[in-house]
Design a protein around this nucleic acid. Structure first.
Lengths: 248, 248
DNA sequence: CGGCTGTTTGATGAGTGTCAACGAATGTGG
DNA sequence: CCACATTCGTTGACACTCATCAAACAGCCG
């Protein structure tokens, strides 16, 4: 298993190369953690027919906006995306960050409108899956249907768990641990990864002030728990981080 | 449309009566907001075959526990339930409250174990839906499949939205508004309803101290925004409440 | 009545948001 | 390649919200 630190540049190039030679999920580097996970050959083939394979986006481009008619799911192929809503005073609130292999748009199903705006944080790539086609395929392939339920169930669960933490250090630690876990699931080192998210966005997501986040990062650095510079994170003391996330 | 205040006692009796005479969703008072919503006769009949109709529980009884093997979804039929997890130090953390008509257990799908413990806050009733049977039925009935996706999508969405609020007053206001909306969807008055949730549980769910909650309730009472006594809530100034939830 | 549990009240301090200012990094146009 | 503008991150001072501790009170049930 690959445990090299995750580098977005690398992945982006890799993905672009793959996208040129194959638009099939079975050849995608992400297929074990993405929607195709657990499907057999026949199901994969059908999925490949439906999916519009990887297209690239630049920093700041959106996949869809809150309120747009819902007609497709999207899968992050490279880069990091954020989903956001606007509060009544027009301020953006970040709901979630999305890493490669994660499916976005699921919350748009229930009333046929996207409920969030999804934006690329850096240059990235995505696949698009028309939802009508996917439903139809799920009707024919029980395992695909089940995988979709699993996917939504997992999203629901991880969303519920975010609800927990109280203090700022705990929230930050839990956030880093969540990222670490997700990178590990993707075959990258959970101890060290690129994190092309501005501190403003991070603070927004975590529901704390930029200044608080900055001070916290410095503190964790001074305590020898982690190193963070230039959007690159290295976790030095995983136990301490877990303790922080556990207590408060 | 019925806009009488919601009384759990009433509903409980009603539901018990219904449960004795019919175990079919089509005769259930909740069928418009529950899983059967939008299904045709054939689909309803099939669903009725699968569902184990309403059973009663007493205060403190659990439907399932975190870690139990997942094999069925549950629908609240009467009463209020809470779903909880335990943090590392063994303290209970309330993830969500569930009103009649709401489906619980969805987060257990993805790894075949329930992810929360669901407990009755007062005497109540529930229906049980074996998940394997439900999946099979969804395979035959596209509309049922779609309804399941809608249900999970809606849950996901409402979970995401909880993520937002910051200050204690805003969180409390948002919580009351969420309850009001859910009671209105069930045909009850959104302005006045029973709320058989202890302040301890409420504070736990909202992530604030009991004392803070108590002081807040008093403040809102003094400001003429609401009346709260004996677990009965009356909203007097809905606009003010919405303003509170919006800003902070 | 006494022993619970649930709720209220007050005093206090830690944790964080806010404001203001500065410094560092990045991007832009000449 | 250099000035400049702009965004991004850091630092300090301060105020305020809210958690915590302690204690009294209220409601409920044996």
């Amino acid at each position: 298993m690959n445990t090299a630190p995750f580098k977005h540049q690398q992945l982006h190039k890799l993905v672009n190369t793959l996208a040129k030679t194959a638009n099939q999920c079975e050849k995608c580097a992400l297929n074990n953690i993405c929607l195709p996970s657990g499907l057999d050959q026949k199901e994969l083939d059908h999925l490949a027919e439906i999916i519009q394979s990887s297209k690239t986006v630049n920093k700041g481009q959106t996949l869809f906006r809150n309120g747009d008619p819902f007609d497709a799911l999207y899968v992050v192929h490279a880069g990091i995306f954020k989903s956001t809503i606007e509060d009544k005073s027009g301020k953006e609130k970040i709901i979630q960050f999305h890493l490669p292999g994660e499916v976005v748009g699921l919350d748009g199903i229930y009333d046929s409108r996207y409920q969030t705006t999804v934006t690329a944080l850096n240059s990235g790539a995505y696949c698009q899956i028309p939802f009508g086609d996917l439903l139809q395929a799920a009707q024919s392939y029980p395992e695909l249907q089940k995988q979709l339920f699993r996917l939504m169930s997992k999203n629901l669960n991880s969303c519920e768990r975010q609800h927990g933490e109280l203090s700022a250090p705990a929230k930050l630690a839990a956030f880093f641990l969540s990222l670490a876990r997700r990178f590990r699931e993707r075959g990258f080192s959970p101890m060290e990864f690129d994190l092309p998210i501005s501190q403003r966005d991070m603070a927004n997501f975590l529901g704390m002030a930029e200044e608080t986040l900055s001070r916290l990062l410095k503190k964790l650095h001074n305590q020898g728990i982690l190193e963070y510079k230039r959007h690159h994170l290295k976790i030095l003391d995983m136990d301490a981080l877990q303790a922080l996330a556990g207590e408060g």
